[in-house]
Lab assay of single mutants.
Amino acid sequence: DVEEQIRRLEEVLKKNQPVTWNGTTYTDPNEIKKVIEELRKSM
């Protein structure tokens, strides 16, 4: 579920933690925001 994935990513973003997405680890909050944007567009 895309909305659930977005929620999880936003939680990680709030905690300022790195997130691994599709085999890539993002540590930059701006990169994580881009991933969230892409997910929103795909909905």
Rank of each mutant, 00 (worst) to 15 (best):
D1C: 12
I32W: 03
L39N: 00
I36D: 00
K41Q: 13
R7K: 09
E11D: 11
R7C: 05
L13K: 02
K14S: 14
T24Y: 09
K34S: 08
L13Q: 03
T24N: 08
R7N: 07
K15S: 15
T20N: 14
Y26R: 00
N30L: 13
E4R: 08
S42M: 15
T24I: 15
I32T: 02
V19D: 03
V12N: 15
R40W: 07
I6P: 00
E10V: 07
E10R: 05
R7V: 05
D28P: 01
I32H: 00
K33M: 14
V12H: 15
I32E: 00
E3H: 10
L13W: 07
R40F: 05
T27H: 08
T25D: 04
D28K: 04
E31N: 03
N16V: 04
P29K: 06
T25E: 09
V12R: 14
N30C: 10
I36A: 01
E11M: 09
N22I: 02
K33A: 12
E38M: 15
P29I: 06
Q17Y: 14
W21G: 02
E38W: 15
G23Q: 02
K34F: 09
L9R: 00
Y26S: 01
D1E: 13
I6L: 07
R7E: 05
T24D: 06
T27F: 08
L9M: 10
E31S: 06
R7W: 07
I6D: 01
R40Y: 12
P18C: 11
N22A: 07
E38L: 14
R8M: 15
T25C: 10
T20V: 15
T25M: 08
W21R: 02
I36S: 00
E38T: 11
E3W: 15
N30D: 14
K33Y: 12
V12A: 15
L9A: 02
T20L: 13
K14Q: 13
T27L: 05
G23I: 00
E3N: 07
E38C: 14
E4D: 11
L9K: 00
E37T: 07
V19G: 06
L9V: 03
E37Q: 11
N30W: 13
V19S: 02
L39C: 02
E31P: 02
S42D: 05
G23W: 01
E37S: 09
I32G: 01
T20G: 03
W21Y: 10
N16G: 15
T27W: 09
L13P: 00
Q5K: 05
T27C: 03
E11Q: 08
T24Q: 14
E38K: 08
K14Y: 13
